[in-house]
């Protein structure tokens, strides 16, 4: 790959990442808070109460918020950014490892 091509590729990767950051960090606040399809069906069909709290329901990030942070916008946005960064680390490491082994 030429230096120029490599630069433009990096630019694309960074752009893609920034878009994801903006979606998780800013746009997420405007997401619909209605139950999703499965939750709604469970509610209508009377089996929603069979759900049990996950063992990690006490996680400081549980349900896309930061525990103790009352500002809803900040809480959702920050949890999204943390999630993006963690997913990036796990994903990049996994795929880098898989690639190298080939």
């Amino acid at each position: 790959m030429t230096e120029k091509a490599e630069k433009s590729l990096k630019k694309f990767y960074v752009g893609f990442f920034v878009v994801a950051m903006a979606l998780a960090g800013v746009v997420s606040y405007y997401a619909s808070s209605h139950p999703d399809g499965l939750e709604k069906v469970a509610e209508n069909e009377g089996f929603l109460e069979t759900a049990k709290n996950s063992a990690v329901s006490g996680s400081p990030l549980a349900d896309y918020g930061i525990a103790g942070l009352d500002n809803e916008r900040l809480s959702v946005g920050l949890s999204g950014i943390v999630g993006v960064v963690i997913t990036a680390l796990v994903g990049m490491l996994l795929f880098k490892f898989l690639k190298k082994k080939s």
């Binding site: 990767y13 893609f16 990442f17 878009v19 994801a20 950051m21 979606l23 998780a24 997420s28 999204g80 999630g83 993006v84 997913t87 990036a88 796990v90 994903g91 990049m92 996994l94 795929f95 880098k96």
Partner: peptide, 11 residues
């Protein structure tokens, strides 16, 4: 592939 995971998490 890593970025795809990130994007899906966000969306």
């Amino acid at each position: 592939a890593g970025l795809t995971a990130v994007f899906i998490f966000a969306v």
